[in-house]
């Protein structure tokens, strides 16, 4: 089990086929004191990173990606019980109610719709118990 409350020791994995999102997330998470951040451009690469570099406290994963999409990635991670303590946040433009239900059913812990603000990321992390709630 990895430490989930000390942001300095927290490790995050950003999975998105857009490099811009990696950069934005590095800035947003960095402002929250999370600096140990890896990234991957699709679900398959992300699984490799997870096994080689894991465990991670948090995975932020896009829905639509080549090779393996976000939903299949979430299912694959949740099938591997040794990542049970890793929180998975889907970060996607997909905003339909059925899609959110599908992501949660697959094992995502929460869901953030793009476009997002740094405050939204912070609030999601607070919900997941990964950073203190802001007053």
């Amino acid at each position: 089990m990895v430490d989930t409350m000390s942001n300095g020791s927290m490790r995050a994995l950003v999975v998105d086929d857009f490099q811009t999102i990696h950069q934005i997330m590095r800035r947003v998470l960095g402002a929250l004191g999370i600096h140990d951040i890896s990234d991957a451009v699709d679900g398959e690469k992300a699984l490799e990173v997870l096994e080689k570099e894991g465990p991670f406290n948090l995975v932020l994963v896009d829905w639509y990606m080549p090779v393996m999409n976000g939903l299949d990635f979430v299912r694959a991670v949740r099938a591997r019980r040794h990542h049970d303590s890793t929180k998975i946040l889907m970060v996607t433009t997909e905003a339909e109610q059925e899609s959110i239900v599908a992501a949660l059913d697959a094992g995502a812990d929460d869901y953030l719709m793009k476009p997002f603000t740094p405050e939204m990321v912070e609030e999601k992390l607070a919900i997941l118990g990964l950073c203190p709630a802001k007053g």
């Binding site: 905003a95 109610q97 959110i100 949660l104 995502a108 929460d110 719709m113 997002f116 405050e119 939204m120």
Partner: peptide, 15 residues
Amino acid sequence: SRGLPASFLVKYLSK
């Protein structure tokens, strides 16, 4: 998207 867990969103609100 501000502070509402997704599980609550889909349970208590409808699009």
